[in-house]
Write a protein that binds this DNA or RNA. Structure first.
Lengths: 80, 80
DNA sequence: ATATGATGTAATGTATTTCTTACATTATAT
DNA sequence: ATATAATGTAAGAAATACATTACATCATAT
């Protein structure tokens, strides 16, 4: 189970780590962000390239300043 | 013509301004980012909520550090 | 005034995100 | 050991991002 996005690479995120630091459940995060739990699961697993606003809302729900704090966009392994 | 996104508000961006500072045409930006010119036009007009990776690529093509430098995500008028 | 390059509009199609529902597995506590 | 909460998987539908093509308008230069 590689959980690849349609562009061939998984989307790396730090959602799960930061969510746990805040002792939040997937369901709580989903509510905070106004999406379904399925969406949170898929994001944590890097299964897709979320919309900008969703990425932003997740970032804020996790108390971070920049989207780049949560979503890993630069990577030695690949270039978008 | 309000150019609203499906969620009811236009997505404000500073693409056009920064593109012009760099003396880039829409077509050049489109090529740099690997999308069609239509996509750039729609983005400049705030007609949709781009994917995170597209937002990132546009940001980098415009030589900015953070996505938030190009896409206005906090606004007094509305909250996502 | 006209040619040319840059920007805009519109219609239709395809790809991918996100939702919905339902069930399965894992962790935690009692 | 069993109940309960949390996480995961899967299939299908819905919404919307993005592509494609073709034509229209605007700006600038000659």
């Amino acid at each position: 189970m590689k959980s690849l996005t349609p562009f061939g690479e998984p989307m790396k995120t730090r959602i799960k780590e930061h969510r746990k630091e805040l002792k939040m459940t997937q369901e709580e995060l989903a509510e905070a962000v106004n999406v379904t739990r399925q969406t949170i699961i898929a994001l944590e697993q890097g299964r897709y390239n979320p919309s900008l606003i969703l990425a932003y809302k997740v970032t804020k729900a996790l108390k971070k300043e920049y989207i780049e704090d949560i979503f890993e966009l630069e990577n030695e392994d690949f270039k978008y």
